[in-house]
């Protein structure tokens, strides 16, 4: 993803900078290029003389368009699999049953108030995502350790995915107002 974005950015930056340099007369040493039209008639003459040029350019543009489409499909697939995992019905059923048990187990941990469980990804690259809401002063390190050792491990066993990566996002809930009320001062006589 990042490489594609960087490549697109580099091409755009180079194109924009070259056009700016051309317009500002940086290449005028090779002739008065900055005064020539954007769609130069010389380009038309060149394509007329070289019959292979336009089809080759069209092929390159088509490849570019296909790459873009493929990239869009890959991104769309990732978004869809984030919400609807691409798993067979049997695994999905096992995961649903295991999620209920996991939900119950996690809520039993000290300080945990709420939990949301979601299995995402594909059969080859699944992910278990947990959103855990807990009290502000929860011993997170302990809850995190216990989660990994107990409930999550049982979930992995139940779904038959021993190497399932698990991503846990903790959301401590603060119940206190940001500013403590000022204590009334003793009245002076």
């Amino acid at each position: 993803m990042r490489i594609g974005i960087a490549a697109t950015g580099t091409v755009l930056l180079l194109a924009g900078a070259s056009a700016l340099a051309l317009g500002l007369g940086a290449f005028d040493a090779f002739g008065a290029l900055s005064g020539r039209p954007l769609l130069d008639p010389a380009v038309g003459r060149f394509t007329g003389d070289h019959a292979w040029f336009l089809p080759a350019l069209a092929g390159a543009a088509e490849l570019l368009a296909l790459t873009g489409q493929l990239w869009l499909v890959v991104q769309g697939r990732a978004v869809v699999h984030h919400w609807w995992p691409d798993l067979d019905p049997e695994t999905r059923g096992r995961a649903r049953a295991a999620a209920d048990v996991l939900n119950r187990d996690v809520r039993g941990l000290p300080g945990v108030q709420d939990v949301r469980v979601r299995l995402t990804g594909t059969a080859n690259k699944p992910r278990l995502r947990l959103n855990v809401s807990c009290a502000g002063d929860t011993l997170l390190s302990e809850v995190y350790g216990e989660l990994g050792a107990g409930p999550v491990e049982r979930y992995r066993r139940a779904t038959g995915m021993p190497d399932l990566p698990v991503v846990i996002r903790f959301r401590p809930v603060s119940e206190r107002p940001r500013r403590r009320r000022r204590r009334p001062r003793p009245e002076t006589a």
Binding site: T8, G9, L12, G16, G23, G35, P37, L38
Partner: peptide, 24 residues
């Protein structure tokens, strides 16, 4: 109708370069 040195072309070229920088 436009030449490379036209101010409008320069603005558009600057915009393209800025978009490229944003992507980078």
């Amino acid at each position: 109708g436009y030449a490379w040195a036209d101010p409008d072309v320069l603005v558009v070229a600057g915009g393209v370069a800025a978009l490229g920088t944003a992507f980078l």
